[in-house]
Write a protein that binds this DNA or RNA. Structure first.
Length: 235
DNA sequence: GCGACAG
DNA sequence: ATCTTGTCGC
């Protein structure tokens, strides 16, 4: 395949690459036993043009924090709707590289395949890592759904439709709170994606992996602990 | 041509 | 994403 590939591309080249990569996304479950779930997110310090990516590894189904890491680097690309992965993925991957334990599943802050070309940052990261991923977004990029059909209780959900196809689901992770936009990333089905997201929801809108990563990415007092450990043997 | 538009 | 205090509701 064309992985690895450069990230600093022109909008035209990035879109062309997405069309190529989307062909390789697998939506059948290839999720083995899940012991560790990672959550990733990123914050930006506009003034210094710095990105602060964070990854938090949780045990499953306990959801206890096992590892937390931050990775910082200058932001390279601007934000362009539909091309978010080219702006955030490099930094997120930097944070993931610090994990000592390989995650069995990764939850990403953004769309999975609920994307114009079916390859949001969640799906893109899954392809790059060859690990099952789920896109957990807080707002819609594309698609429509039946608001009336979505129950108010935590656990209810309705399919997200785009061009006559089911690309994800609006999932109520908390009663009477705006639903999360859930879509499979890679190596996982929509049904399984929803199942894991709900299994990771602890009374907050964001599922634990993403919620913890979001919090850590915004933390300004976090000090990355020493890494006298051995290099990761999985990446 | 006119909106919509993850983070 | 980020700018930002108090405030309404479960």
């Amino acid at each position: 395949m064309q992985i690895p590939h450069p990230w600093n591309l022109s909008p035209e080249a990035a879109i062309a690459l997405q069309h190529e990569l989307a062909q390789h996304i697998i939506l059948e479950d290839q999720v083995g036993e899940v012991r560790y779930i990672a959550g990733v997110d990123m914050a930006i310090h506009e003034e210094h043009n710095m990105a602060q990516a964070a990854v938090v590894l949780l045990s499953f189904p306990d959801l206890e924090i096992v590892e937390r890491h931050i990775y910082e680097e200058p932001i390279q690309m601007p934000y362009v709707p539909g091309l978010l992965s080219f702006r955030e993925a490099p930094s997120v991957l930097g944070a993931i590289r610090k994990l000592r334990q390989k995650p069995d599943l990764v939850m990403v802050d953004g769309q999975g395949i609920a994307h114009p070309r079916r390859i949001g940052i969640g799906a893109h990261l899954g392809l790059w890592l060859n690990i099952p991923t789920i896109g957990c977004a807080k707002s819609l990029l594309v698609g429509h759904y039946d608001k009336e059909a979505l129950g108010e209780e935590a656990g209810s959900w309705v399919p997200l439709i785009y061009k006559k196809e089911v690309i994800g689901a609006m999932v109520r992770t908390r009663t009477r709170v705006n639903p999360m936009i859930i879509s499979p990333g890679h190596l996982i089905s929509l049904e399984t994606s929803i199942r894991y997201v709900l299994a990771c929801s602890k009374g907050y809108r964001l599922p634990e992996p993403t919620r913890q990563a979001d919090k850590l990415s915004k933390d300004k007092t976090w000090i990355e602990p020493e890494a006298p450990e051995q290099p990761t043997l999985w990446s």
